[in-house]
Write a protein that binds this DNA or RNA. Structure first.
Lengths: 202, 202
DNA sequence: AAAGATAGTAATTAATTACTATCTTTATCG
DNA sequence: CGATAAAGATAGTAATTAATTACTATCTTT
């Protein structure tokens, strides 16, 4: 379903490239995605890709930036619509999970980037993403405490950690089983257990 | 500290190769580990590696097999030494975490393998590993229930899932932060929260 | 409609890398 | 001690792939 339109304006072509990489990552190992494959999927020649990106790394960087922006947006939207802090946590969780199910290539790209030793630009972007993500979780957890929904002596950092770990665990298992749909089945059950661990004991 | 001994018997050379790959994976992206790099680290020429493995995939396969065997062994040992099911879960958790800290390259290799689309041999080995791992968790959880240590209506599959997810989350965060030591700091806090979610409410 | 800017093509290049064929050294055992 | 098989060295090959470049097609502005 790629629009076979040539001669796109540069910014649109860059957007299509990012989209294409994410789609390709759902089908194959991200490190096997060649610039030739990206071009082919867009209906362009390999060289044309370099009209819009100085090098291959810049493409990946653009992908990660898109992901960070989009994920935070979706998660914020979900949280805002929820009636209480605990409900917001659950809504965030499900929004995140659904985002991944819609774009199964994304966690694979991220995991691939995390493999690189030392500091890389994509890693730094991912760091700011998780940092902001954790901030949001911390905020919700504190509001849940004052709200009496959550346990007053809850370790908010451990809780935020577990929250993100749950999602990563779901993703890993779905990758291992070659079955993305599995996530939707397991997510609510795992979250129920999480809720049990954080809510106020009364 | 690689033993610069040439002319090792074939089985020893294979063992040293596995060890070398794991060490290299701690330093660089597993997909960037070339046969030349493996050979160099062992003090051999690149061609010599192929005296002991038919191809590169076979090397990776041997690595994954070693990991699966070793991890299950360590985790079993830790669980056996524990005085109760809940204590065994915690001992297993810490044994697993320590194993990863000692061999930081291992999760990177595993994650790298999970990237591949479809069924691969390393993926199948990893699948049996997590299957056996989950069996052990299920068994401990059931024993914890009869023991009244754990909540009687605990969803054992969700709990096992969360257990593994915690470890994966810890690993991901340490990769992101380029700081393995971080795991040791966070692990006990996260486990405390997990314990809160699974233990009997009384 | 001319001129300039933008986007894409096609072919090439240099580097990398898994793998192989052939020759040499080393260990071991009768 | 000497034959022989195992282990390693040397010197390749073929395939892949990111990047470059000279050229062409298409769009936009004046």
């Amino acid at each position: 379903m790629t629009h076979q339109v040539k001669h796109l304006p540069a910014n649109e072509r860059r957007a299509v490239t990012v989209e294409t990489v994410i789609k390709l990552a759902a089908e194959r190992n991200p490190s096997d995605i060649t610039t030739a494959a990206i071009a082919e999927r867009m209906g362009l020649t390999q060289g044309a890709v370099f009209r819009h990106f100085p090098n291959k790394d810049a493409i990946l960087q653009a992908v990660i930036e898109w992901v960070a922006e989009r994920l935070l947006f979706l998660v914020d939207k979900a949280a805002r619509a929820a009636p209480s802090p605990l409900a917001a946590l659950e809504a965030m969780f499900m929004a995140h999970v659904n985002f991944i199910i819609e774009h199964p290539g994304i966690p694979r790209i991220l995991f691939g980037e995390l493999q690189h030793a030392g500091e890389t630009i994509p890693k730094r972007i991912a760091q700011t993403l998780t940092h902001r993500y954790r901030e949001r979780l911390h905020r919700l957890i504190e509001r849940g405490k004052t709200n009496k929904e959550l346990d007053a002596n809850l370790d908010r950092e451990a809780a935020a950690f577990l929250f993100i770990g749950m999602i990563q665990g779901l993703v890993m298992q779905s990758l291992l089983a070659n079955d993305v749909g599995r996530i939707l089945h397991d997510a609510p059950r795992v979250f129920a257990l999480f809720r049990q661990g954080i809510r106020s004991t009364q």
